[in-house]
């Protein structure tokens, strides 16, 4: 008898707990819903603004759906032909910088992971990373004069490709170090004993194992370089223009062509979004760390 009562009580308790959990879950979902609205709304507003007429963007009462659709905006942004070449310039700079960051960051990361003592140890690696912690503005002017004295000047692809290493190389080095550390050294040793020379062993064994991580690092570097504005604004402008410094040019005196600006921004979003979609499969594994255990 007592036992049955116990079971009955346990059941009600279990039911109560389940009830409570369900409530918590609903609350959480509601919260997530709000969060989603909050983050997606700017994107939405940007997208519809890109299709509005110039007049409609300046109404005191904003509209949340275009009264009239103006897809011509997307052609209009290229009325200035250098606007298209700006996208190309940005692409060259972002890609060049990413490749260089990956190459140098992998080499350095490997050294920190495998030969910590010879490479200066954890402190050295952390010091490199700490280079990302100062406000970039602090080095804006000195960097300008520094690059101004190089043969290629400031207004060139190469200047920004190299300059962005200041930010991307520490990140790439640190992350690659973490990924290389996750690859047991014994795997490379086994490869040596199989008869592979060090470089071949690296390519055959280590590289495939850090590749997902490497792709994630590439994405982070690429997006930073693609979106950088502060330095680009000061460094380049006539021979080379990045798309980020084109965006403010849609403001003329007191008037801003919001529709064109948003249309151009939307176009500038396409390359990173496409990259993300294509590389997502590898990225997610890379960012969830502990890449290759097993």
């Amino acid at each position: 008898m007592a036992a049955t009562a116990d079971i009955a009580q346990a059941n009600t308790q279990a039911a109560q707990t389940a009830e409570r959990w369900r409530a918590v879950r609903y609350l959480f979902l509601i919260f997530l819903g709000f969060w989603l609205l909050f983050t997606l709304f700017p994107l939405y507003f940007m997208a519809i603004t890109a299709f509005k007429s110039a007049a409609e963007t300046n109404l005191t009462q904003p509209t949340f759906w275009p009264q009239e659709w103006f897809p011509e905006n997307f052609v209009g942004v290229f009325a200035e032909p250098t606007n298209f070449s700006a996208l190309v310039d940005s692409f060259i700079i972002a890609t060049g910088n990413t490749l260089l960051s990956l190459l140098l960051g992998s080499l350095a990361g490997y050294a920190f992971a495998r030969f910590p003592r010879q490479a200066g140890g954890e402190n050295m690696a952390f010091w490199m990373l700490s280079n990302r912690m100062f406000p970039p503005v602090a080095i804006l002017v000195p960097m300008f004069f520094l690059f101004d004295n190089t043969p290629w000047g400031t207004d060139s692809h190469i200047s920004l490709i190299i300059l962005y290493l200041v930010f991307n190389l520490p990140l790439a080095t640190w992350l690659m170090m973490v990924f290389f550390r996750d690859v047991p050294h014994e795997l490379e040793e086994a490869a040596y004993l199989d008869g592979w020379k060090p470089l071949r062993a690296f390519v055959k064994v280590t590289l495939p194992l850090v590749l997902p991580g490497m792709i994630s690092v590439a994405m982070l570097c690429w997006i930073f370089a693609w979106n950088e504005y502060l330095f680009a604004n000061l460094f380049v402008g006539s021979d080379v223009r990045t798309y980020t410094i084109v965006i403010p040019t849609f403001t003329h005196g007191s008037q801003t062509l919001w529709n064109l600006q948003m249309a151009f921004s939307l176009i500038a979003m396409i390359p990173p979004v496409v990259l993300f979609i294509v590389l997502r499969r590898y990225m997610v594994r890379g960012l969830s760390l502990g890449v290759v255990k097993g």
Partner: peptide, 20 residues
């Protein structure tokens, strides 16, 4: 001599199999 010049084969306690 480095390991790849020694013609030595070894099993590791941890197996050290290539996971990929």
């Amino acid at each position: 001599l480095p390991p790849y010049r020694r013609r030595v084969a070894m099993t590791f306690e941890s197996y050290a199999l290539y996971p990929h």
